[in-house]
Design a protein around this nucleic acid. Structure first.
Lengths: 329, 329
DNA sequence: CCGGCACATGTTATCGATCACATCGCGTTG
DNA sequence: CAACGCGATGTGATCGATAACATGTGCCGG
């Protein structure tokens, strides 16, 4: 920086002002400094800046399992949005979302003096951890507990589930079965809720929830059971992988989809269009979630006060070939 | 740090020594300092450390599209390994792997004074970018050009492809067709090579490569064509998503898998076991790749010299239900 | 009994930026 | 026309760590 200052014939402070877009610098001086910067190929040392300001241009993300399509997409979208705003993203994966793990991951980010933190906290157990976090750091939660008063961005799970269920009812099915995700996930309980709402709103019998986790394996097991029940003609699966398992179980038992059984998924993974048959599903807009999260976080960083705003993104129904009227009609 | 020093009754330098595990500190002093640290909840300021040492405890990763299962798994595995070694990972996604984008992503990491960089560079176009990078920064390439003299970790694509092809030949098929990935990917050309080698080694006719990209959509298109050709009884798909598309095309045309046509994929995505039928595929060990990459990078960081070592990970055949002897037998 | 040499510890400079305050012109105003 | 204010710029302190060198102790061998 001193070299740049010397070459431009100004003081280091003026260089700093140019760098930070400070207004009180003469146009001509600004240009001389700019020229010197590019001539020397100078690049500011972020560590020095972080040292004196106490904040870095880094955002930390705490996620659980970014191998899954949803979280991975979210991460990429967020990283992209952050890069456009001049921020770098530092990822801290944890294997379990309990208090201890989240706490440690957050601590680690604080060590690095990140400017803000995003926690993808879709499960109950993450809640407790979030309660015990230092309150003065900008923090936004994605897919966290809707009932917690905190900065939160969520996909409207219930609305998506309602759409899916209504779509099946509208096709003529007398009721819709639901294979759910693990019930400590908010995503999962929200979907169950939306499904139940749509059924009761239609004045239709609510069958018992078929519990599963998010894997194709558990969808397959649930599917084996449902395939044996002739009264089951419509199934709403809590995600696309479950749906895949269900499709296979149905196919093995000779129940055709969609002629005998209709299936709707959730997530719209890229392969969903190439399942057998192509899967009708609900698509959450991860880009929108990422953008909203970033905007909220930057707002907190600029204002200096963690605020408990909230943003909900409505998902969208994608119609393909896995739904048809029930066989009897 | 000064506070800690005061509380422990030593100088800040001694605190620094304790922190960095310097040997010449008396046991008793070390304990006093430790006690003071935990009593005050002191945490070292990484920015200050980075400023004075010129290196941060951050590793940068440049990847193209970490939404895909392979790259996402790699990223998570690497992040995990890095965390164990006390490093944080900063991700820089780029949309295209051309010289400009990679250059910019790398620059951005250098700005942050990362200790080392990993570039996941599976395509030809990344090569040029890598040539023009500053040579003095520790850098390891994953899935890069095997013919370039650089620090490189790769999955042995050719070996995996050979295994897959041989497995199909051993089942009794007279030859094996191949639906390939985009041919500017090294992964793709490696798999083509291995497939071709296995066929010629068996003294068997080599059918033309069916070109595709990595998507289920293009696999479906390729599958539609192959399904119309009765002489096709065995297909090796360059990845599992292609295989999924092929499975659907076959099913639509009434060709049963594996009775009429056998299919093998590559990657072992988690859902592969729940395709219809469960897919026989090749599993690359992403964890091993991540570990090898980290070890190589840390080696370079410690020695201070970028070295052109190389490490190849052999993938593994996972047998499921998508392969059977040809119908004629 | 003293020089020397490890080991334990302290002192001061340094990294590269920003911040707070000082200074210098120069046009405006009463 | 002197005082003032403000825009443009410079000066020195500062953030929190490590590096290099200095100092103080105790033990050993000659």
């Amino acid at each position: 920086m001193t070299d740049v200052a010397r070459l431009a014939g100004v003081s280091h402070q003026t260089v700093s002002r140019v760098l930070n877009g400070h207004p009180n610098v003469r146009e001509q001086t600004r240009n001389r400094v700019r020229a010197a910067i590019s001539e020397l190929g100078y690049r500011p040392n972020r560590a020095a800046k972080a040292l004196v300001t106490g904040r870095s241009q880094v955002l930390g993300v705490v996620a659980q399992n970014s191998t899954l399509y949803g979280p991975a997409s979210l991460l990429v979208a967020f990283e992209h949005a952050a890069a456009e705003a001049g921020f770098t993203v530092s990822v801290g994966n944890v294997s379990v979302l309990d208090r201890h793990s989240i706490g440690r991951a957050v601590e680690q980010h604080l060590d690095q003096r990140v400017a803000g933190i995003v926690v993808i906290a879709p499960v109950e157990s993450a809640n407790e951890a979030l309660e015990h976090l230092p309150a003065d750091v900008p923090l936004v939660t994605i897919d966290g507990d809707p009932s917690r008063p905190a900065a939160l961005v969520t996909v409207d799970q219930a609305a998506g589930a309602r759409d899916a269920t209504k779509f099946l009812l509208d096709a003529g099915h007398s009721t819709v079965w639901h294979v759910s995700g693990p019930n400590d996930w908010f995503d999962s309980t929200g979907r169950v809720q939306g499904w139940r709402d749509a059924l009761t709103a239609a004045g239709v019998e609510v069958p018992p929830v078929v519990p599963a986790d998010w894997t194709a394996a558990s969808g397959y097991r649930a599917g084996q059971m449902l395939a044996r029940m002739p009264e089951v003609t419509a199934v709403f699966a809590a995600n696309d992988h479950l749906a895949l398992g269900i499709l296979r179980a149905m196919s093995e038992r000779g129940r055709r989809v969609p002629e005998d059984v209709s299936v709707v998924g959730f997530d719209d993974v890229p392969e969903a269009a190439y399942f057998i048959p192509p899967l009708t599903t609900i698509r959450p807009d991860f880009e929108a979630v990422a953008r909203a999260t970033l905007a909220m976080l930057l707002g907190q960083i600029e204002s200096g006060t963690p605020t408990a705003t909230r943003h909900t993104i409505a998902p969208e129904l994608v119609v393909r070939d896995s739904v048809a009227p029930p066989a009897g009609r």
